[in-house]
Amino acid sequence: MFEIRIHSRGGQGGVTAAKLIAQAAFHDGKCATAFPFYGAERRGAPVVSFVRISDEPIKVYSQVRNPDMVVVLDASVMDATDVFAGLKEGGAVVINTTEPPSIKGHPVHAVDLTGIALRVNLVVAGSPILNTPVLGSLARIGLISKDAALKAIAETFADPRNVEAAKTAYEETKQ
């Protein structure tokens, strides 16, 4: 079983990102679950959501404590939250940033998701959308297939800019 923890802020779509990843994994023929940890729901507060992917049905409902991968949609949450807590040895980190940090013992995949969203004008209510482009990044590093990622996005959002942003992120993510 592969476990992922996603850090974001309320309103950035971290919860939807988790759902989309599970949908994509499902299209890849895997079993997957996605769920948020709901605190008091408010915009801007740090939010954590989880994804589990496995070849077998998943019976675990408790939170992910030792993720195989951490996804950070908003690098500013790192000031408030230890996003690496419990991360498995050698576990990958995907960060939306223009200044990739170096984290000892962990491969870091940095991508400017905010920039990509702005470039394709994927902005809703003044906020760049991060949850669809991040699927492109995750496809690039092999978590899910590119086809499944794009399919999950297309079946969830009618706006083609979501798929476009994911394709761009796919190209721009460093393996």
Binding site: F35, P36, Y38, Y61
Partner: peptide
Amino acid sequence: LDGFSLSHITQS
């Protein structure tokens, strides 16, 4: 069904 842990989880 359990609040959040089942109501809000995504599964197949």
